[in-house]
Nucleic acid binder design. Sequence first.
DNA 1: TTAGTCATGTAAATCGTTACATGATTGG
DNA 2: CCAATCATGTAACGATTTACATGACTAA
Lengths: 196, 196
Amino acid sequence: MSSPASAAPRASRTPWVVLGLLAFEPMSGYDLKSTIENTVGHFWQESYGQLYPTLRSLRAEGLVTMTSEPDGARVRHVYAITDPGRAALMAWLEEQPRATPVRNELLLKVFFASLADAAALRRHLRHALERVDEQRAVLAAIREAIAREPADAHQRRCWTLTVDLGLRNAEAVEAWATQALAELDAEADAGGEARP
Amino acid sequence: MSSPASAAPRASRTPWVVLGLLAFEPMSGYDLKSTIENTVGHFWQESYGQLYPTLRSLRAEGLVTMTSEPDGARVRHVYAITDPGRAALMAWLEEQPRATPVRNELLLKVFFASLADAAALRRHLRHALERVDEQRAVLAAIREAIAREPADAHQRRCWTLTVDLGLRNAEAVEAWATQALAELDAEADAGGEARP
DNA sequence: TTAGTCATGTAAATCGTTACATGATTGG
DNA sequence: CCAATCATGTAACGATTTACATGACTAA
């Protein structure tokens, strides 16, 4: 008795990012993309291929409206959140966040590193340290963008909190990779191997 | 002149997890699933829906072989890595890891928390602290599983390194959430609001 | 004039999860 | 006998990315 598999429930968070940002300010799809990069970009990304279809369906559901503003020969499509949109967003914000599955390719290569040559592991660890610096620069830029934004204290605090965890994670990776490299050096010295 | 979009390049890392584990020991699809959970589960997950099709295509490419071992009335399908499979795996392990996009629903709710009621943010932070404890238990179990495994020192070190970063990340979240809750309390006291 | 950015999207393909389907074995 | 677990998968759907397509505006 095989009834058709009813399959996956709606799980995309894209609508919520969109509604959240539109709750601060009406914007175009293009603006949404760049605002996402400049604010939540260090822990959340969206592509145009997700954004535009999402805007279309949110509009169909009545959670956002679109107005066409003439801009020279072009037309800007500005989206704004509606009252039902705000209500849906609030309800979602109250819900306990679902665990977002973590996938870390660096750790995968570390886990299997004993199958490759010994230099590869060190290389990956040093590369991770370089990326920590880049990440710090990204976080600093976001922090400045927040500082420039006219917003009340509570709003600013919520935004800054996300940067804070980003910094702590960067520190965790830095301490981990540094210690790992030091231990590998110590083991190599003890084993009498040449260090690359 | 619209030639058909050639679309996404092969980006799945599932084949590499499979090849990596089979490089340690031949296994069935079922074994792969549970081994993944017990070893790399804290930073990498795979579903049967990914594993079985991947095993099929790896076999078609000659990177793994399948042997059918009778097991009572059942048949166990045991997969083993081939020499070309090992070569492909080594080459991948040498490559610099691509950045795996991070998506964190908790931070999304924190970022937008000023749009919801003030209690929700505290609730999410407290919930995060609880999940840190669960995560520590998972990591401890994996550490024990590694200790039970007969493996050489270097192999064991690589495996343990992944657990170490997991622990550091857990500490980062704990420190962050604890500090955030304390600061929110201080602000609430200063503002004269009731604390939930 | 040319590079860069603003701006709006679509098409194709792949990635990945969830739910389903099926049946044997094992321990209590 | 029954529940849990071993064991092997597939179907359907939804999520997401990448590449493409198009064109206006702007500053050097």
